[in-house]
């Protein structure tokens, strides 16, 4: 500002304004460098993904409707090692079913996503068809309340967008959503920890 404006200055001399600008830039660059130094030491893992802690899940059904995806990224999964292979599965059948058959009116799942197949007397295998599962947790409630709890909800990472603010976590009634390291993205039940 102190220098006289020149008509066509190809290279004006370093003015006070220019000096301040250089100083501010240097300060900000140092600040950014400091931030990197501060945070780079802490980035121990490769990042986090969302997952449901089955122990905290209250099976409220909000997972089915709260996800930003049209079809929720949360699906029911099955740890067969815990499953009792019950003939009368309370996750598969509505309460007091007419018959223990695969007829639609006997099924609890609103989309018919559970397949029931005979293994050997008296055991039946139940598998989840993920394409049909909407994560409504009706079967999870049935299995946990009356059975072994081998069915539970998990965020499926082939579908999950890993939003910064998980819209299900925001409304989760059991506070069951948490960020887990991307190296161990699932919280599966097993016979030793369930």
């Amino acid at each position: 500002m102190d220098t006289n404006p020149q008509p066509n200055p190809p290279k004006p001399p370093v003015s006070r304004r220019q000096f301040m600008r250089d100083g501010a830039r240097a300060t900000m660059l140092v600040g950014v460098g400091g931030l990197v130094g501060l945070l780079a030491g802490r980035h121990a893992s490769n990042g986090f993904v969302w997952q449901i802690d089955p122990a905290k899940c209250v099976r409220c059904g909000l997972c089915a409707t709260s996800c930003v995806l049209e079809q929720s990224a949360v699906k029911c999964v099955h740890t067969h090692a815990i499953c009792g292979y019950c003939r009368l599965c309370t996750a598969y059948f509505v309460p007091e079913p007419n018959a223990l058959s695969t007829a639609a009116e006997n099924q609890l799942c609103p989309t018919g996503a559970i397949k029931r197949s005979f293994i050997e007397d008296p055991y039946y295998e139940y598998t989840i068809d993920e394409k049909l599962c909407i994560g409504c947790a009706k079967c999870v409630e049935g299995c946990n309340r009356f059975g072994n709890g081998s069915l539970y909800l998990q965020v499926r990472h082939d579908r999950c967008l890993n939003c910064n603010e998980c819209s299900i976590a925001k409304v989760c009634a059991g506070d069951a959503f948490r960020r887990v390291p991307v190296d161990h993205p699932y919280m599966l039940k097993s016979t030793t920890s369930h």
Binding site: G84, N148, D158, P185
Partner: peptide
């Protein structure tokens, strides 16, 4: 509540799939 059964027919337990991130 219902102990997981022992199968005679050589039935193999399916694994729980874990599609990766």
């Amino acid at each position: 509540r219902f102990p997981p059964p022992e199968f005679e027919s050589g039935y193999k337990l399916p694994d729980t799939t874990t599609p990766p991130a």
